[in-house]
Amino acid sequence: PECADQRVLAKHLYDSYLKSFPTTKAKARAILTGRTTDKSPVVIYDMNSLIRGEDQIKCNYLTPYGEQNEEVAIRIFHRCQSRSVESVREITEFAKNIPGFVNLDLNDQVTLLKYGVHEIIFTMLASLMNKDGVLIADGQGFMTREFLKSLRKPFGEFMESKFEFAVRFNALELDDSDLAIFIAVIILCGDRPGLVNVKPIEDIQDTLLQALELQLKMNHPDSSQLFAKLLQKMTDLRQVVTEHVQYLQLIRKTEVDMDLHPLLQEIYKDLY
């Protein structure tokens, strides 16, 4: 009966995940490997292909501030921000569907999201990446890693640590149903700074961890120690977030006119 409960929980989280996140890993991998009847993504690999791509890709967040005349590196950085804000909205909706989450102290709900959202953003970004680049605009475009690396300092290094993490993480070959539970586990971490009431958070996470372990055993019977390997990735994710925050601090120092979205300002303030 306990296993049955864990399977119901896994199914519930997977359904919530599909409702909350429009671009699934399954869709992204189909596009990246050419196993889809949809149009191939527009490949952006230099300034000319970027300009062509901007005409071809229809997406609200391509020009979020309506500033086509902004410098390319800053424009791309702004688009990353807009996508991050949208991701925070999606993750919040997903979190509210984790059984027990909305019954937690409201301050703790805020803390869990504040510390969890970027770890989840970089987990899900890995689904859109391969070693050569990243899908953008819901799979309409593919921006190469080399092009991102060629952007002027300090923007050129901004995505490298995310690619390095993605290559290692994608080697685990998780699918969307695994990721749904893993993301819930990340949100319900009882060791986030400033939590008021840790016990109920740890209780929910224990239940989620049991569901995740069973899910991985059933979905990946030949992959030994996958559960342990995946838990290890949570440490790596914290490192990626720490580096990301350091990059942002550098960018805010060197780019005096750089504005940060108010939602991201809230999240980054006193983060690490």
Partner: peptide, 21 residues
């Protein structure tokens, strides 16, 4: 804490309600 995170707080309070399991 929620006072310092007005937008996050609003996202948590607004929009769609949670699904019962």
């Amino acid at each position: 804490l929620k006072e310092k995170h007005k937008i996050l707080h609003r996202l948590l309070q607004d929009s769609s309600s949670p699904v019962d399991l």
